[in-house]
């Protein structure tokens, strides 16, 4: 699997629920051994995209290829693709061990035993507990443990951090990084927890308005965003007027009555301050923000003013 033949390719995916369009032509690509974060607002279609990829939902238009197979044929990959869903999809009447034994039987080529994955997820003390007796976080751990019994080449996770405490999140992030490094498994993670995604993702796709608003390597996307600053001035309107037509700066939003959020391009913050002072615009404070996934996401989903 290489760039020309990616682990996952989605082209022009369109999906409607009745008369309500949800996806307006989603394009997505995940190269082998990449960790792709799929982010978007509530109702933006992240789960629907994943369900279409997995063949759980029919879609009206588009092409989906997962490890060279169509969505309806994923089972023919014999466990190369696994998924962990938004709600822990595990039978509540089974014990943790029974649940894992069931998943092991489901796995055509198991490479780990049940006790091993229990240890990996830290649920070995709950072996005899029924799923319905577990907290949401531990149920989520069981559902993740199920996916690790084999050696999948592609793992799709929909909101994997829901219900997990901080140590659980750390453990899952560590597992994702380890599996990605050691086995070369590709990951598609859909989540609202942007700081967590930033820690583990190599690539990001931002789904907004039923389309991919931005996609690429996380590092490149963040570099493209550039530095953002919040300018505090007693004369924000004058500052706005001055900077509006300057190519070295982009006004993102009126943060408040006295604050402007700006993005600098090939311009340092001290140069901006000097420029403003030169035009007799008072500068009370200039706060530099780091280019983060959270900032990038907010920027893309809020819409730019300029």
């Amino acid at each position: 699997m290489n760039e020309a033949n990616p682990a996952l390719r989605v082209r022009g995916l369109r999906k409607r629920y009745g008369d309500v369009p949800v996806l307006h032509g989603v394009d997505l690509e995940l190269s082998a051994a990449a960790v792709l974060g799929l982010v978007g607002l509530n109702g933006s279609g992240k789960t629907t995209t994943i369900e279409c990829i997995l063949g759980l939902q029919r879609f009206q238009e588009g092409e989906v290829s997962v490890l060279g197979r169509g969505p309806a044929d994923l089972f023919r990959l014999q466990g190369d693709v696994v998924a962990i869903f938004d709600s822990p999809s595990v039978p509540p009447h089974l014990t943790v061990r029974q649940c894992l034994e069931h998943a092991r039987r489901l796995c055509p080529r198991p490479v780990r035993d049940c006790a091993e994955v229990e240890r990996m997820l830290g649920i070995e003390s709950y072996t005899r507990y029924r799923i319905r007796q577990l907290s949401l976080g531990n149920r989520r751990r069981v559902s993740i443990a199920q996916a690790l019994l084999g050696e999948p080449r592609l793992i799709l996770l929909d909101e994997p951090f829901n219900g997990l405490d901080a140590s659980g999140v750390d453990r899952v992030l560590e597992l994702i990084a380890d599996l990605n490094r050691e086995t070369g498994a590709g990951f598609l993670l859909s989540s609202h927890q942007l700081p967590y995604l930033e820690r583990v993702c190599s690539h990001v796709a931002i789904l907004h308005g039923g389309r991919i608003a931005a996609a690429g390597k996380l590092h490149d996307l963040l570099a493209d965003v550039g530095s953002r600053v919040i300018l505090h001035s007693t004369e924000p309107d004058l500052a706005l007027k001055l900077l509006e037509n300057d190519a070295r700066v982009m006004v993102l939003e009126n943060h408040s009555a006295t604050h402007l959020m700006l993005r600098l391009r090939d311009w340092r913050s001290d140069e901006l301050v000097a420029h403003l002072v030169q035009h007799e615009i008072p500068v009370c404070e200039l706060v530099q923000q780091r280019a983060s996934l959270d900032n990038l996401f907010r920027e893309l989903t809020a819409g730019e003013r300029k």
Partner: peptide, 17 residues
Amino acid sequence: SERDIGSIRHVLIRRAG
């Protein structure tokens, strides 16, 4: 019931049509 729980999805993805 398996569709309600979601467990049928795992079977569909990993093992059978």
